[in-house]
Design a protein around this nucleic acid. Sequence first.
DNA 1: GAGCACTGC
Length: 986
Amino acid sequence: MATPAGLERWVQDELHSVLGLSERHVAQFLIGTAQRCVSAEEFVQRLRDTDTLDLSGPACDFALRLWNKVPRKAVVEKPARAAEREARALLEKNRGSKQTEKPESEDEWERTERERLQDLEERDAFAERVRQRDKDRTRNVLERSDKKAYEEAQKRLRMAEEDRKAMVPELRKKSRREYLAKREREKLEDLEAELADEEFLFGDVELSRHERRELKYKRRVRDLAREYRAAGEQEKLEATNRYHMPEETRGQPARAVDLVEEESGAPGEEQRRWEEARLGAASLKFGARDAASQEPKYQLVLEEEETIEFVRATQLQGDEEPSAPSLPTQAQQKESIQAVRRSLPVFPFREELLAAIANHQVLIIEGETGSGKTTQIPQYLFEEGYTKKGMKIACTQPRRVAAMSVAARVAREMGVKLGNEVGYSIRFEDCTSERTVLRYMTDGMLLREFLSEPDLASYSVVMVDEAHERTLHTDILFGLIKDVARFRPELKVLVASATLDTARFSTFFDDAPVFRIPGRRFPVDIFYTKAPEADYLEACVVSVLQIHVTQPPGDILVFLTGQEEIEAACEMLQDRCRRLGSKIRELLVLPIYANLPSDMQARIFQSTPPGARKVVVATNIAETSLTIEGIIYVLDPGFCKQKSYNPRTGMESLTVTPCSKASANQRAGRAGRVAAGKCFRLYTAWAYQHELEETTVPEIQRTSLGNVVLLLKSLGIHDLMHFDFLDPPPYETLLLALEQLYALGALNHLGELTTSGRKMAELPVDPMLSKMILASEKYSCSEEILTVAAMLSVNNSIFYRPKDKVVHADNARVNFFLPGGDHLVLLNVYTQWAESGYSSQWCYENFVQFRSMRRARDVREQLEGLLERVEVGLSSCQGDYIRVRKAITAGYFYHTARLTRSGYRTVKQQQTVFIHPNSSLFEEQPRWLLYHELVLTTKEFMRQVLEIESSWLLEVAPHYYKAKELEDPHAKKMPKKIGKTREELG
DNA sequence: GAGCACTGC
């Protein structure tokens, strides 16, 4: 009979030769399953059910051999014994005492089996305790949240003040030029290579008309680019610029100097400049004579070969609404709230909609933004009596602000105080009470509620809004809700989505009917470029100016991919406007992206001064998250930055990719919110048709799923491969998540949730982070670990590094360094900030982002509250950082790297990795490292690294590491050891 | 010596 270890080795070897994989937990899973099955047939069937192995030919043979090899005696006895134990576990309470009597002669299988069952019992007891505590907890949330909201508002005001002080714009011409030059060079090289390829490959092939045209475009673009480059070099000699008006500027050198001074001006300069701008704009209004005299100059501004040719190709249809005016007029706003409600597009459908909801359990609602579905439908349901008998209506939103603002509006419409009948529930802020029946919440929040109420028993209706956005949480909700709906026939499910994909939702929910509500949108004319653009940034700038001088009034929205591009584009635009001076009307250039200080963000909402035009240069944030009034023109280069995840390496990367058609149309739609608009796409109609994906890949397929898997397991969903996903994630992603959870001890060898896993699921952080928090109890340092966890949760935006104070900022950062690594640096930053009384002034002085710190504080407070829930006590290590580092290692032993002759390599996958230059350990080379995350940018970088000792790995994860693989092959271990012993002796 | 879109619990 094979020993357990021998059997396991045998299975691993077999697995390797049969399937080409050899995972320890797979082997254990197979042995465990074989051991529990009464017959070989049952075993094969079970493996088939998991759907993880291809059980044809050799694999099936292997399964049979394995079943035979598992000790016969055990096979016959175990299931009966296990079943008996399970029954006893449920029925008897004095089981524990019987266990202690177990003879020592029991073999390893029996021991693990006993431990497993004991753990399951503990887990269920823990879950029950949590449920009970939730029940007992009485809330007085309303007052608390009001107070909190007030404090929040105060904090924001203070922060805006700080941000304003810190805001000092400056020029970065050099880096910008280098960036653009490099980009242009690369594009041109690409194009030339492509053309050369085509000529070589298809030179003598008959081309279709279309292909010929394409080729001609490409050649023309190449020639233009060459000419342009040549011209540019010529211009460099002349020290002029393409849009430069030489005679004007040369005549006014003083003006240029003025502008430079303004740029580096003191705080308050912005305000003055803005006022000047308004004055300037006002003065432009005098008479038509001015305007007329400017006309011919436009021709000079944009010479023919420098403009971009657009062709109008299609039109995004507006929704016809002849009777109702599209925007509430002044008079309308003064009318009663009820009249406004009646004017919404959804109103005429009220009865029909309620009938459809009554007749069908699941209804897909297709409606554009502005149809009133989000605010009205829950109210209709309320009026119809769906909230009687204490039942609630949930409406989920993908974003926090949306949940808050919609709830506030509905409360106003219903004439109740926010938090009473109508409330919202988002992370860090629960504005609901016992009386709340209409509950707006973020999708992630409803997902969390499944943990305490898996059947959503207190809800009569669940409405999933903005379903087309396909956020990770929405996608998981679909599967869960579909399941709940099956055994709760009285639960109504509404899925609200924009026109996209409603058919798919319908199919997913067993052909649920689709109810269409017209929106309120204006038509948008779509224009494409005639030829592809080599440098889209340059093309953007030219197009903006082109729109500015040739098109009627209306603000412009430009979509770029990130902060760097936005800054570059804004500078180019401002630069050119300055050179053109009074020859063109004023153009206000405003950037917007998530990391921009709040007061700068607020500027995009200020109304445009008369006579001027606003151009907002934005990231994806303007696609869904915020709406800017007055946008008539949209400029879309067709790119976005997207996160992707490689499950094989566990590495995330952020890359610029062409956006999808859906995304392009969403962007175009932004032009038609107040009037008929125009969208200029900086790519050809052909590219739109043939090169863009139909829809964006749903998030669930682009991200790591550790906490999702943990959550599903906690909800009792064991068979993830068969979970009803609208779009299933890659198989490898699920497998890696399972493997990691197994390594972390969240799942046992049969893939069942353990007590520790159940606790981890309670914490709203990634599994490794929650493991670290749980482990902090053992090392008595939960206070410190909470801080580290909170700081790690805010995305690398702790240190602020303004371009003009790089040296100061770097010095400030280095001052926080502590030996040991970045985790301790983060701890240090937070501790000092807390000692300053959470001061924003302190942040400003130390080049730390106040906004991020405030978020870290929120996270820390939430985690601290949850610590009690997972039954971990608060304790401090009192400066003994070894304990903190060990606790971190207990969560992150999966993420380790060791120094080899050829640099760092990850311990398990032997992948070459590098310390990120921002790390405190960048200039040191510790032998053993632990990293928080691995990101692929220009190289495979480890971000947030911590120095560890290899012996700790054996201490915290003996199941995962073998002493042998932690030996240092090159280290001169023996002499060192001897030396040490002697030292000790002496 | 790099350079992080956007959400959310």
